[in-house]
Design a protein around this nucleic acid. Sequence first.
RNA 1: GCGACCGUGGUGAAGUUGGUUAACACACCUGAUUGUGGAUCUGGCAUGCGUGGGUUCGAGUCCCACCGAUCGCCCCA
Length: 429
Amino acid sequence: MKYQRPKGTADILPGQSYKWEYIENTARKLFSKYRYHEIRTPMFENFNVFSRTSGDTSDIVTKEMYDFNDKGGRHVTLRPEGTAGVVRAFVQNKLYGPDTYKPYKVFYMGPMFRYERPQSGREREFHQIGVEAFGSDLPELDVEVIAMALDLLKQFGIKHVRLALNTLGDEETRDAYRKALIDYLKPHYDELSDDSKERLYKNPLRVLDSKDPKDKQFVADAPSILDYLTDNAKQHFDKVTSLLDALNIDYDIDPSVVRGLDYYNHTIFEIMVKSKSLGKGYTTICAGGRYNELVKQLGGPDMSGVGFGLGVERLLLFMEGENIPFPNLHPLDAYVVGIGDDTDTETFKVVQALRDAGFSADRDYLDKKPRGQFKAANRLNAEYTLTIGGKELASHKINVKSMASGEEVSVPLKDVKDNFNEVIEDSFN
RNA sequence: GCGACCGUGGUGAAGUUGGUUAACACACCUGAUUGUGGAUCUGGCAUGCGUGGGUUCGAGUCCCACCGAUCGCCCCA
């Protein structure tokens, strides 16, 4: 093979792209109901946009970024996630100003890039659908975002999910907890995994979601951040949980949920599903939380945000694994068969008239014989096959055949062009 | 970054200790049926076995490198 697509990328072909279209359409419709509007930001940003916000020690920044110097010597990065770029745009365009209504609610969908080894549910170019809402510190907004994420999965026909919830509290909480965690883990330093040894001082919270059995034995009895919440942080979190209760949304409070990006605080959550298609155990397909420092970090005012990101490839893998059906968005209403060269023009006119009237219609472009044209109609799953031959042409008629029943009627050509719906109604219902 | 496994037509694949014409099936095209689909039968359909080297009289089969797929770990959506 001479040319192959780059490692970790995918060609999404028509046999698959209709599913993407369905997912994107469904998401758009839902976001509209919650009054979130689309924002489109560049696929690449200055390196600093991500390195500053995601955390200099995070794996995403240190080893997974597609960064390079452009011809002008600018250090740029293909975006590894959606939030930082949106926040940058929010700040640069002064959307925090009084001209915009708060909370300022946006959504995005598009490709993200991470230099990793591809495997199930993970590509180097992958896609996320996400939302961000700025300008409200109230826990009510956290709940809206969580409820909307769950609503979205519900729209896709996904029944059983696990909502894992945690809080990182405010700065004071985090400092106190960080200290407590280090104090707890320090005596076991030699017994920790190499990764965790390194993380202990840089970012001890990450030790909590280690899957290494060596670490897990200590994590189980580690102090819980919930015991270190300041009054404010606790109040915020309690409000979130009580609102979730009021909305009949099930959740598990899971202190091991810490998130891979450093900009979160207060509420964080992951929505997980269990499926053989995504390996054993639960896999996170959607995750998010509140970030109160990010806007300020990128040069904006002290304004908070909350959002989530949904992995489209993982969602798709899960839905396919669970045999959740995707609607056929592009059925073929009519295939027009022309018999004999002199019908060619009229055939084209009928096809265009039907398209003009809002039907999907197609015809032969390979000079096939009638039999071949019917085979094509059958293969394309046409609902109706219309036939024009010499006889029909002379009498200004056309044959209309229902492919499902095999029933065929002869009707005036004009009727088909002017009101195909009525022809179908009268002939087949 | 580490590990495992794999790479033959449009697809699913066979290919025996390396041996000369790369099975079989599906799909597709064609004809039986010069104006009618989903059934049956006719005939057709890989100048090449991911790419590049090497070993050999001879390589799809052995060796090396590279590229890519799949699946773990790490990490993450």
